[in-house]
Simulated assay, not measured.
Amino acid sequence: MNLFEMTIAILIVAILAFSLFYTLVVGRQHKAVQGGVDKQIPDHVQKNVYAKNPVFLAYGIFFALLLFIIFFIAITFY
């Protein structure tokens, strides 16, 4: 890896780490607030909390695409 690729990789990892940390902090703050502002969560979402959460879906799709890109580059150039 050259310096540019290493810098981009470190930047991507830093953004992902910050995003995950921020998501966890906001989730904990939301649990701490006991207000009646939100509506009832549908039953099918309550049964599949992780599968129906858009944040976890976004992370899953990102890592799947990242692995696909890594394998594509590995097969193409090596």
Score class of each variant (00 low, 15 high):
49 V>H: 12
36 G>Q: 03
73 I>V: 15
47 K>M: 14
12 I>N: 12
58 A>P: 00
9 A>E: 14
53 N>P: 04
62 F>W: 03
22 Y>N: 14
57 L>D: 03
24 L>V: 12
29 Q>D: 08
29 Q>T: 03
23 T>P: 02
60 G>C: 03
1 M>Y: 11
75 I>R: 11
46 Q>V: 05
7 T>I: 12
31 K>I: 05
49 V>T: 12
55 V>K: 03
25 V>F: 03
5 E>N: 15
33 V>W: 11
5 E>F: 14
78 Y>F: 12
23 T>C: 13
28 R>Q: 13
34 Q>M: 05
12 I>F: 11
16 L>Q: 05
9 A>K: 02
58 A>V: 10
46 Q>C: 06
7 T>A: 15
71 F>C: 13
14 A>F: 12
60 G>W: 01
7 T>Q: 10
50 Y>M: 09
13 V>Q: 13
25 V>S: 02
30 H>R: 15
53 N>G: 07
77 F>S: 04
2 N>Y: 04
71 F>V: 11
30 H>G: 11
40 Q>H: 06
36 G>F: 02
60 G>S: 07
6 M>D: 09
36 G>A: 01
31 K>V: 09
21 F>R: 03
72 F>P: 01
73 I>G: 02
16 L>H: 04
15 I>G: 06
71 F>G: 05
5 E>M: 15
12 I>Y: 06
44 H>S: 00
72 F>G: 05
13 V>R: 03
24 L>S: 10
54 P>S: 11
5 E>A: 14
17 A>L: 08
26 V>A: 07
41 I>T: 14
12 I>L: 11
68 F>N: 00
22 Y>V: 07
62 F>K: 04
67 L>Q: 00
69 I>H: 09
22 Y>W: 09
8 I>Q: 10
9 A>D: 15
45 V>D: 12
77 F>V: 09
9 A>Y: 07
56 F>R: 06
31 K>H: 05
43 D>N: 07
